[in-house]
Simulated scan of single mutants.
Amino acid sequence: MLKTYQGSCHCGEVRFEADLDLTQSSFRCNCSICRRNRFWPAVAKEDGFRLLTGEDYLTEYLFNTKKNQHFFCKVCGVRAFGVGNDTPIGRMYGVNIGCLEGVTEEELSNVPITYVDGMNDRQEPPQYFSHL
């Protein structure tokens, strides 16, 4: 069931709200950027994400195919969300679950996770994934 969550980067300059269903799978990926910054996204459809404040504090990083936008706060460096522009559901937002406010440790421990082998551009789990 969709619920509206509030969230922010660490310093609070970037604030957003997102309509998410945390009973649906989130994702952990072993691609070069997700592995390095431990990104743990839940999916919000394009109309289910609203940047409330901090657009001026965001810096964008593009790499490889340059299809996906990776945004970081210029002050604290936290990646609160990213934008997938070429996905099976069209344009979507990957919202960093660790940036959501008011989610208990118990709730976080129950969020389902799908592991993907982004390192090899495959949607299947990689051979090793417990470290993700």
Rank of each mutant, 00 (worst) to 15 (best):
L2I: 14
L2E: 14
T4K: 08
T4N: 04
C9Y: 08
C9R: 07
G12L: 08
G12Y: 08
F16C: 06
E17S: 12
A18G: 10
L20S: 11
T23I: 02
Q24G: 04
S25T: 11
N30Q: 06
R35L: 15
R36F: 08
N37W: 08
W40A: 07
V43N: 10
A44F: 01
K45D: 14
E46D: 14
R50Q: 09
R50C: 01
D56S: 14
D56E: 15
D56L: 00
Y57G: 03
T59S: 07
Y61C: 08
F63C: 03
F63I: 00
F63R: 00
F72G: 07
K74I: 04
V75D: 11
V83N: 02
G84M: 02
G84S: 02
N85K: 09
N85L: 03
T87Q: 04
P88Y: 08
P88V: 06
M92D: 01
V95I: 15
V95K: 10
N96F: 03
I97F: 02
E101H: 13
V103L: 15
E105T: 14
E107C: 06
E107H: 06
P112F: 06
V116S: 08
N120I: 07
D121N: 12
R122Y: 06
E124W: 09
F129G: 05
F129R: 13
L132R: 10
